[in-house]
Amino acid sequence: MRRKRTSGIPAGAPTLSKKDFESDQDVRWCPGCGDYSILAQTQRIMPELGIPKENIVFISGIGCSSRFPYYMNTYGFHTIHGRAPTIASGVKMANPDLSVWIITGDGDALSIGGNHFIHLMRRNFDVNVLLFNNRIYGLTKGQYSPTSEQGKLTKSTPLGSVDPPFNPISLALASGATFVARSLDRDASHLRTIIKSAFEHKGTSFIEIYQNCNVFNDKTFIQYTEKDTKADNTVVLEHGDSLVFGTEHDKGIRLNGFQPEVVETTNGEYSTDDLIVHDQYAEDTTLANFLARMSDTPDMPHPIGIFRSVRHPCYEDAMTNQVRTARERMGDGDLEALLNDGETWTVS
């Protein structure tokens, strides 16, 4: 039902594999970096999207994460710090048939590119944004970022950072994003599923990916990504399901007034019927906002999955429509008539 456009693979075309999406460039991230996994999952899912490789464009800003396009054997543009959303908007506007992917980091998207980020969300171009959130500036060797926790000790903040962080999910929701999700570098199959859902969503799809920078901010997300701690520290969002989590599936999230709270579902006080039921298609963002704020609240599990997925008109369609309507109403532009428009006089 939410499946969409983008010129499909012509019948009889060879099916593509992960290999087809690997470029001939050596991948140059630090060994152990979470970026490797995101690259691999992206390359693995691409053949399943059912679109020709030449219709795919990866556009990035600057940062470790933004090297990504060089490794994809598609069209790619490694642009300037923070500005990938602007260039991607131009690419999509000029050719709405392309499948456009923006690769960005927490500094790239939320510091220098913060303004473009919010405006991209509100315009709702049909593009996909993968934000590699490692809560650090990797490429510049380890300064704190706008998603670093307050008090972060780095080279540039030897006494601790003083400014509170952004919550990327809340920011995207507040900016009117129509598809908002979170996934993890270490959860390969979840990540692939979310990337695919983002592709299938018509409109700007935003995915925050918790990404480990093992050199400058190692283990920041360890409690959400490792087997033994993951179940107690994350809650997986599934549309229509109650928010249950925990190794024993014995915990859930209930709304207490305006406050989500963690409750036990097996001690008789609450049952799964008392829990929040996830509705990712809700037009109203109240629930999505509650869920987003959970990751700012100590001792709450971090939601993983799709917070919101709603269908709104896309900028490029509205603009293309204006062009079409103008052509219907006034006819295709006649240059000669345009130059001779208005009052003219002839000298012989």
Binding site: F77, R83, P85, I87, G90, V91, N115, H116, G333, L335
Partner: peptide, 29 residues
């Protein structure tokens, strides 16, 4: 001049404005 296929994009700032122009050029406009 939309009927000439002209797309005008009033962007959030001048950087975004040149950004969309560069993106459009990459796309072949």
């Amino acid at each position: 001049y939309r009927n000439f296929g002209v797309v005008t994009m009033q962007m959030e700032d001048e950087i975004a404005a040149v950004g969309v122009a560069i993106g459009a050029a990459f796309s072949g406009a």
